[in-house]
Design a protein around this nucleic acid. Structure first.
Length: 893
DNA sequence: TGCGTGACTTGCTCTGAGCCCG
DNA sequence: CGGGCTCAGAGCAAGTCACGCA
C-alpha cells in the first residue's frame, strides 16, 4: 500500500532448482515504499543470466529529504572523536606468506570427517591446519559450476554429500554439522543463485557489471555468489591489539593518550592474543568448535604459530591476564570457545562487566522562544513558549513529505491542541499559517551558514568541551567511547512508512525519566539539570546499557544509551555473531536436507517451518515478528500474507511486500516444485490478508532452528548469506590487477550482498541532474574527440588542422593520437562512472558493510591482495572492526 | 504455551564537513 | 571562493530474540 514504489526493479533470476542450485535471485532493488525507490524486480535469468535491473527513476522524491526537515533548532555539533588509522598492514603481508604456506588440507573435508565426529582433538588439528581450506573448496566449485548447477537442481541435501543423488534422499539431518565441502551446500543459496547466474550468463550482475564499474568485470566467471555480512566485532578479543589501538588513538582526536588511548593500548594488547586465538578458531570448522567449545584454551595453544602472537605478548602479559579474567567473567571472548554451548553465550544473564564508570547523559538545551507569531485566519497569534516550541517543530517540517500525510497532521494537531487547550483561539489546523516561523527558521539557518569559519570552529569547540565528559566510560578499567550520550531532543515523531503515530509530539526527556546503570563503586553522575534528579540508579552488570528512558511515543519501548561500536563489548558480540554464522556453514547442508524433506510433510506445521526456513535461507528474508496495530504494517517471513506471494506457474513465486522500515521487497524467484506446491496449499481457502504461514511464528521457527544448530535463529541466515557471498565472490573474482580493479571487485561483491539483503536507499534529489550533467560532458568530449580525429586525418594528408582551435595548430600526428587516446579513455571512465552511479542509485552498500559482512573476510582479502584496508573501511569501521584487523590472511569465512 | 517485556542489532535518512570544480 | 557533491557520522526508528511470568 503505501508504497510509492519505484519503478526499478531488479530482476532476479533464480534458477535454483534445487536447493543449492544456483538460484539467482538477485533483486535489483526494491523500492521502498516510502522512499519510493524504485523497485526491482528480478527475472529469472535467462541464459545469460542477464538480469538487469531496470531503473526507473521515478520520482524519487522522498519527501524526507527535503532540506528543512529537521528543524532542530539547536544545531548539534559534535565532534567526533576519531581516530584511527589502521594498522594492519605489516603484519598482514607477512602473515600472508606464512599462511599461504599452509597445507593444503582442506578444512572442510577434513573437518568433515573429523569434525563431525567430533570435537576437540580432531578439531584442533584441523584448526591448525585450517587455512587451507579455501583452496580446495573453491576449486571444485568453480570448475564444476556447471555441473553444480545441474546438481543444484537437486536438493541441497543431496548436493551435500553426494552430488550425485537426487533430492529425495535427504541426508540425515540434524545436528551434526557437516562440513562438507560440498560445494554448494555451504554456499548460501543466494550465492548459489547468483553463481548460476554468473556462470550462465551474466546475471543481472552482468548487466550491471558488464561494463564494469570499476573495471572489474570478470566476475562472471566465477560466478558470483554474493554474500552479505555484517560486521560486528566479536568479542573474543576484547580489545584490539595494541597496534591497532595505538593507531586508533592517534587518529583519535581526543587527547592523545589521554587515557583512553593509552589505557586502551595497554589493555588491548592482551587482547591481541586473544584475538589471535580467535582467528585460529575461525579456521576451525565449526563443528569442531562446537564440539568443544571449550576449546578455547586450546586455541591458545594453537595460537598460531604465526608471529603475531609473539609480538603481542610482552606487554601483554599483565594486561593479558587481566583480560582473560575479565573475559571469563563476562563470558567474553573466550566465551565462544568457552561457552561450549556455542555462541549463545553472549546473551544471557552473564556478567558483562565488573566495574563501570561514566558520567551519565547530556540533555539538549532548554527551548529558547523566538517570539515570532504565526497566523491564524490571517491574524497573529500569541503562543506560550511551550506552544510555540511545538508549532515551530511543525513549521519547520513544511518541506518534508510528512506534510502531505493526513495522519501526520492529525496526530500533530491532536497533541498540539492539548497544549493549546480547548478554548484557544486556534481551533483547527487548516486555518493556521506557520509561514512566519518557517521564514524565521530559514533565516536562522542562513545566518548559521554565513558564520565565519572561526566562529563555527569556536562553537564546535565549546560544544565538544561541554560534551567531553559524557563521551567516555571506563569499563573494567578501560576507557571506551559511549555511543549516544545525548538525550534525544523533543520533536515530532517521524515514523517510517504509514506509521500510525507519525506527527505525534515526542516530549522532552528529563532526568526524572532516566535510569542510570553504573558500577556499585562508581560515583553516581551528577544530574546536569539543577534541582532535578535521576529516576533510578541501578548496578546491573549483566547488561551493557549505561542509561535508558522510556520512549515517549510508545512507553512500552526503551531508549538505551550504549557504548560505541568501537568498544570491546560491542566488538565481542559482533565477533560472536560472525562465529555463529560461520558455524552455520557447517550445518547448512544438513539443515537444507532436513527442510527439503519436510516440504512435503503431512504435518502442516512442519511443512510451514520447512518452507519458511527455505525462504529465509534462499532469500535472506527476516524472521518477521508479530506487530501491534500501532506500528507500521510491515511483514517478514513468518508474517507474510497470502497477498504478498503470487504463484506463477510452473514454479515461480512473486514476492511483494513491505519489509523493515517499510522498504518494499519485490522479487520473483523460481523455487523448487514442492515449495511452489506447498505455497499454493497454504494459500488455499484464505483471504488475501490472511497469514500465509498460519501455523507459524518466529518463536516456533527459532525453536525449531535451535534443534538443528545450537544458537541458530532466523537472522543468522542473513549474516551467513551475506558473509559467505562476499567471501565467495572475492575469492572467485579477484584477479591480478591494480588496486582500483580489486576495489571494483569488492564493490561488486558488496553490491551483490546489498541486493540480496534488499538494502535500499532513496534516490538522491539531484541524481537526475547529475546524470544529465555527465551525459552532457560525454557528448562534449565526443565532439572534441571527433575533431581530433578529423585533424589527425588532415594532418596525415598533409593538410593543416581545421579551424578554430589554435591550440591544435602545431600538433603532430603522434600528439593527436595521444590526445585521441586520452579523450577516449576519459569518455570511457565517465561512462563507467555513470553506470556505477546509476546502478547504485537505489542500493545502499553501507548497511551490509556495517552489519553483515564479517570484517575478517575483508581484512584477509586486503592482506592477500595488498589492498590498503583504508580503501574499504572508513575510520569508524576501522575502529569498529579493530578486533578483526590481525586476522590471518588466509582466513576464509 | 503464550505474552509482554527487556536488551540489543539492524537500517535508513539527515547533516555537516571536506572536496572538487570552475 | 562559492556552490554542488560526497561521504562519514549522527540520529533515531524498527527489527530480532531471549526471558520470565502466569
Amino acid at each position: 500500500m503505501m508504497a510509492v514504489e519505484a519503478s526499478d526493479k531488479l530482476i532476479v533470476s533464480d534458477d535454483f532448482d534445487d536447493e543449492d542450485g544456483p538460484v539467482i535471485f538477485k533483486r535489483t532493488n526494491t523500492t521502498s515504499k516510502k522512499n519510493q525507490l524504485s523497485e526491482v524486480k528480478k527475472t529469472t535469468s535467462s541464459l545469460d543470466g542477464q538480469t538487469h535491473r531496470k531503473i526507473s527513476d521515478k520520482s524519487s522524491t522522498n519527501g524526507q529529504n527535503s532540506g528543512v526537515q529537521k528543524s532542530k533548532v539547536i544545531p548539534s555539533v559534535k565532534t567526533a572523536p576519531t581516530k584511527a588509522s589502521i594498522v594492519i598492514s605489516k603484519g598482514s603481508t607477512s602473515r600472508v606468506c606464512s599462511s599461504n604456506v599452509k597445507s593444503p588440507v582442506v578444512n572442510p573435508k577434513a573437518s568433515l570427517s573429523g569434525d563431525k565426529s567430533r570435537p576437540l582433538s580432531g578439531s584442533k588439528v584441523l584448526n591448525d591446519v585450517k587455512e587451507e581450506k579455501h583452496p580446495i573448496k573453491h576449486l571444485p566449485r568453480e570448475n564444476s559450476e556447471d555441473s553444480d548447477d545441474e546438481e543444484d537442481n537437486k536438493p541441497l541435501s543431496l548436493r551435500l554429500k553426494m552430488n550425485s543423488n537426487h533430492n529425495s534422499k535427504a541426508s540425515p539431518i540434524v545436528k551434526k554439522p557437516i562440513e562438507d565441502s560440498d560445494d554448494d551446500d555451504d554456499l548460501p543459496l543466494s550465492a548459489r543463485l547468483s553463481r548460476n547466474a554468473g556462470t550462465s550468463g551474466s546475471g543481472y550482475d552482468h548487466s550491471d557489471q558488464k561494463k564494469p564499474l570499476l573495471k572489474v568485470q570478470k566476475s562472471h566467471q566465477g560466478g558470483s555468489s554474493t554474500s552479505i555480512k555484517q560486521e560486528k566485532p566479536i568479542a573474543g578479543s576484547v580489545k584490539r591489539p595494541p597496534d591497532k589501538i595505538s593507531s586508533l588513538n592517534s587518529s583519535v582526536k581526543k587527547p592523545k593518550l589521554s587515557d583512553p588511548a593509552s589505557s586502551n593500548k595497554i589493555k588491548q594488547e592482551p587482547v591481541k592474543h586473544e584475538s589471535k586465538v580467535d582467528d585460529d578458531d575461525d579456521h576451525i570448522p565449526i563443528s569442531q568448535r562446537l564440539g568443544k567449545s571449550s576449546a578455547l584454551g586450546n586455541k591458545s595453544s594453537s595460537v598460531k604459530k604465526i608471529g603475531k602472537a609473539v609480538k603481542v605478548n610482552k606487554s601483554g602479559s599483565t594486561s593479558f591476564k587481566k583480560q582473560v579474567k575479565k573475559m571469563k567473567k563476562s563470558g567474553g571472548n573466550s566465551e565462544y570457545s568457552k561457552s561450549s554451548k556455542l555462541l549463545p553465550s553472549s546473551g544471557d544473564g552473564q556478567k558483562k562487566w565488573t566495574t563501570l564508570v561514566h558520567n551519565g547523559v547530556i540533555f539538549p538545551p532548554p527551548y529558547q522562544p523566538h517570539g515570532i507569531k504565526m497566523l491564524y485566519k490571517g491574524k497573529p497569534v500569541n503562543l506560550t513558549p511551550e506552544q510555540e516550541e511545538v508549532a515551530t517543530m511543525f513549521a519547520v517540517m513544511r518541506d518534508t513529505d510528512y506534510m502531505q500525510k493526513e495522519k501526520f497532521k492529525s496526530n500533530f494537531w491532536s497533541d498540539w491542541r492539548k497544549l493549546l487547550g480547548k478554548n484557544h483561539v486556534i481551533q483547527n489546523l487548516a486555518d493556521c499559517d506557520f509561514t512566519p516561523i518557517y521564514d524565521w527558521y530559514q533565516v536562522e539557518k542562513e545566518k548559521k551558514k554565513q558564520m565565519s569559519t572561526d566562529e563555527k570552529k569556536a562553537l564546535k569547540e565549546e560544544k565538544a568541551k561541554q560534551e567531553e565528559k559524557y563521551m567516555w566510560a571506563i569499563v573494567d578499567g578501560v576507557k571506551e567511547k559511549v555511543g549516544n550520550f545525548r538525550v534525544e531532543p523533543p520533536g515530532l515523531f517521524r515514523g517510517r512508512g504509514e506509521h500510525p503515530k507519525m506527527g505525534k509530539l515526542k516530549r522532552r526527556i528529563r532526568p526524572s525519566d532516566i535510569t542510570i546503570n553504573i558500577g556499585k563503586d562508581a560515583p553516581i553522575p551528577e544530574c546536569p539539570i539543577p534541582g532535578e534528579k535521576w529516576k533510578e540508579i541501578k548496578h546491573d552488570n549483566t547488561v551493557t546499557w549505561l542509561a535508558f528512558w522510556n520512549d515517549p511515543i510508545n512507553p512500552k519501548l526503551f531508549k538505551y544509551v550504549f557504548l560505541a561500536a568501537s568498544s570491546s563489548l560491542k566488538g565481542q558480540s559482533d565477533k560472536e555473531k560472525y562465529e555463529k554464522a560461520r558455524m552455520l556453514k557447517n550445518y547448512i547442508g544438513n539443515i537444507r536436507a532436513a527442510y527439503t524433506k519436510d516440504f512435503t510433510s503431512k504435518d502442516i506445521t512442519r511443512q510451514q517451518i520447512a518452507v519458511a526456513t527455505y525462504l529465509i535461507d534462499k532469500l535472506a528474508l527476516r524472521a518477521g515478528n508479530e506487530k501491534d496495530d500501532d506500528e507500521a504494517d510491515t511483514v517478514g517471513c513468518c508474517t507474510l500474507k497470502v497477498e504478498n506471494v503470487t504463484a506463477e506457474a510452473p514454479n515461480k513465486l512473486q514476492f511483494s511486500f513491505l519489509g523493515k522500515d517499510s522498504i518494499k521487497y519485490e522479487n520473483t524467484v523460481e523455487v523448487e516444485l514442492p515449495v511452489y506446491n506447498a505455497i499454493l496449499k497454504f494459500q488455499k481457502v484464505k483471504r488475501p490478508g490472511d497469514d500465509l504461514f498460519d501455523k507459524l511464528d518466529t518463536s516456533k521457527l527459532n525453536a525449531h532452528l535451535k534443534e538443528l544448530m545450537p544458537g541458530l535463529t532466523a537472522k543468522v541466515f542473513r549474516t551467513f548469506n551475506a558473509s559467505f557471498t562476499l567471501d565467495d565472490m572475492l575469492t572467485k573474482d579477484t584477479k591480478d590487477g591494480d588496486v582500483a580493479e580489486k576495489i571494483g571487485v569488492y564493490q561488486i561483491a558488496n553490491k551483490q550482498v546489498a541486493i540480496i539483503c534488499n538494502h535500499q536507499r532513496s534516490v538522491s534529489k539531484s541524481h537526475t541532474a547529475q546524470m544529465s550533467k555527465l551525459t552532457e560532458k560525454i557528448t562534449e568530449l565526443q565532439g572534441v574527440l571527433k575533431e581530433f580525429k578529423t585533424d589527425l586525418d588532415r594532418v596525415k594528408k598533409g593538410k593543416s588542422p581545421l579551424k578554430s582551435a589554435e591550440r591544435k595548430r602545431n600538433l603532430t600526428p603522434e600528439a593527436l593520437e595521444k590526445k585521441i587516446a586520452q579523450t577516449s579513455a576519459k569518455i570511457e571512465k565517465m561512462r563507467r562512472d555513470m553506470k556505477t552511479k546509476e546502478d547504485l542509485k537505489t542500493v545502499a552498500l553501507g548497511t551490509s558493510k556495517i552489519n553483515y559482512l564479517d570484517p575478517r573476510i575483508t581484512v584477509a582479502w586486503c592482506k592477500r591482495h595488498e589492498v590498503p584496508i583504508e580503501k574499504i573501511f572508513n575510520k569508524s569501521l576501522l575502529a569498529k572492526f579493530a578486533w578483526a584487523m590481525d586476522v590471518d590472511p588466509d582466513f576464509r569465512f
